[in-house]
Design a protein around this nucleic acid. Sequence first.
DNA 1: GCTCCAATGTTGACAGTGTTAACTTCCGGA
DNA 2: TCCGGAAGTTAACACTGTCAACATTGGAGC
Lengths: 205, 205
Amino acid sequence: MQDAPNRPYHHGDLRRTIIETAMAMLHEDKGWQFTLREVARRAGVSHAAPYKHFPDKAALLAEMALLGFARLHEELTTAKAKRSNSLRDEFFAIGRAYVKFGTSNPGLYRLMFSAEAGKAVDVHLSERALAVFGVITELLERGQTEGVLRKRDVRGGAAACWAQMHGITMLTMEGLFLLEKVGPDPLDAALVTLLEGLENQAVNS
Amino acid sequence: MQDAPNRPYHHGDLRRTIIETAMAMLHEDKGWQFTLREVARRAGVSHAAPYKHFPDKAALLAEMALLGFARLHEELTTAKAKRSNSLRDEFFAIGRAYVKFGTSNPGLYRLMFSAEAGKAVDVHLSERALAVFGVITELLERGQTEGVLRKRDVRGGAAACWAQMHGITMLTMEGLFLLEKVGPDPLDAALVTLLEGLENQAVNS
DNA sequence: GCTCCAATGTTGACAGTGTTAACTTCCGGA
DNA sequence: TCCGGAAGTTAACACTGTCAACATTGGAGC
């Protein structure tokens, strides 16, 4: 069932095909726009076929956004696993992985934070999106118990981290971090500043 | 010429009318989308009339984005002027003003950072956009010479500030700063964290 | 094994969009 | 006075998202 390659059913499992095709188009067209009809065309079905699987274009977008959060979460956790040394290393690893995800998939990242309808809130309250947020929260908690970070409402700190990473990612994606404006390595500069705002000043090696 | 109120010419000065109408629509429809034809309709002209003043819809958008940067710059400088006390106060005043601008004009703010075409870079290199960035840079420089902020490449610090404010603004606008996730006052928490990352730790009252 | 249902896919249509070309109107300078 | 060109209009083109009516077909129940 999950292996039959050709056309096991009527067409094959559309739904998956549609999502994959749409993802691919999101990747190539940097404009992060794609049309439902074009997706259908590439999938080799008629223009109305997608409506048998998604009530709406917005529904497809929402599903793709969820998928995006899953992938982002995955990348963050693998980045975190790779170096389990100091908290500082972990912090930078996660930060860079986050930004890299955005710059590697600008269309998808955009989608995740627009959602083209009042649905944004729904998507971000989903389990998968919260998992991403959880990675940050967890890191902060660990830092506080270790005494490396100053003790404070973790949620506020997480908000700061999230906003900072999101901001850096968006501005980088858009190509707005121009050398004249922002110096040679704005990403690291921003991460360092953020980290030092979180750190416990007493513990300074 | 610049005062004739009724219909001095063929219709009046479209161009301005078009921009104003589009701005108004951007304000009401939270979807930050508007159609050129609807703009023309409201302006009382035919749907092709705007093309005598703008080669493209993108051109209109770009012009509106520029206008947005001018307004943002204005708000930041007035916020800065109001309290010229400590640098810390000024910092918070500017930060809050920035975020407030975004949340009060979500459609416009979105537009300023999307620009719907490769034109984003052009817009952000414009004089007006750079002026906004200059407000931040200036603040940091002042802080460094006063010794309140630690000495470092100002451009990096400005990048951090910009990213942080942009991130906070976007997430707030989108309604993603949900209490459960992020605590009671994420805006202040983020600003405090940012500021303390910039501060000189020796000078701590 | 046959029958019928419901899921899946197709065709054709509708309203609406951005954009362009051909046409009309009309102001201001020669 | 006349006329060029700017400003506005109309009509069309190729699209889009969405929906209703129709066709196909795989599998559940007899």
